[in-house]
């Protein structure tokens, strides 16, 4: 096989690996972003950006690929959460969540307001505590959260508890200010 043929073969292998990675992880990456943004369309935008960034810079065969994607999804969506432009749209989407329609209008409004405050507070947390909360809430196991954040699995419980406490304080601070 000449050099050009080898390069083409390597390129095909890489593309195949990327497609396989995309197929196996896309839904989960969307889920992480959706957990932060509460907007499935915006979550898909974030997920696609994350995959594009990954593909440009990394090989899909890298064993860290899923962990990279999970962490990037958390950080990218948290960054977007901090953007003021889309807040209004997000709040509207939250208010219309299917599961809340059984509540009376007063309760719906209160719940929507609590969710808005929580996400605002989440956006003010440092990257690591915010990411650990989001990844765990998105259904990742302790081991997967540990891999995504590059920390030992034994630290996850403590990180989670601290992050929850910090978030609670941040919500309270946001409410009282």
């Amino acid at each position: 096989m000449n050099v050009q043929a080898r390069r083409m073969s390597a390129s095909r292998t890489d593309d195949d690996a990327f497609e396989a990675l995309f197929t196996s992880e896309y839904a989960r990456v969307v889920r992480i972003a959706n957990r932060v943004l509460a907007d499935s369309h915006e979550a898909e935008d974030v997920a696609q950006e994350v995959f594009i960034d990954f593909h440009r810079l990394h090989s899909a065969t890298a064993d860290y690929a899923p962990a990279w994607l999970h962490r990037a999804a958390a950080h990218a969506s948290l960054n977007r959460l901090r953007g003021a432009r889309r807040r209004q749209k997000r709040e509207l989407a939250q208010a219309l969540e299917e599961g809340d329609k059984t509540l009376d209008p007063q309760k719906q409004a209160e719940l929507a307001e609590d969710r808005r405050r929580l996400r605002e507070a989440l956006g003010r947390l440092s990257p690591k505590p915010a990411a650990v909360l989001v990844l765990r809430a998105s259904g990742l196991s302790y081991a997967e959260v540990a891999q995504a954040l590059g920390v030992g699995i034994g630290q996850i419980g403590t990180l989670l508890r601290r992050a929850e406490e910090t978030l609670r304080k941040e919500v309270t601070r946001g409410t009282s200010s």
Binding site: R31, N34, S40, E44, E97, V134
Partner: peptide
Amino acid sequence: LAVPEAEV
């Protein structure tokens, strides 16, 4: 933090 599942 609960949200309806995104259908992709």
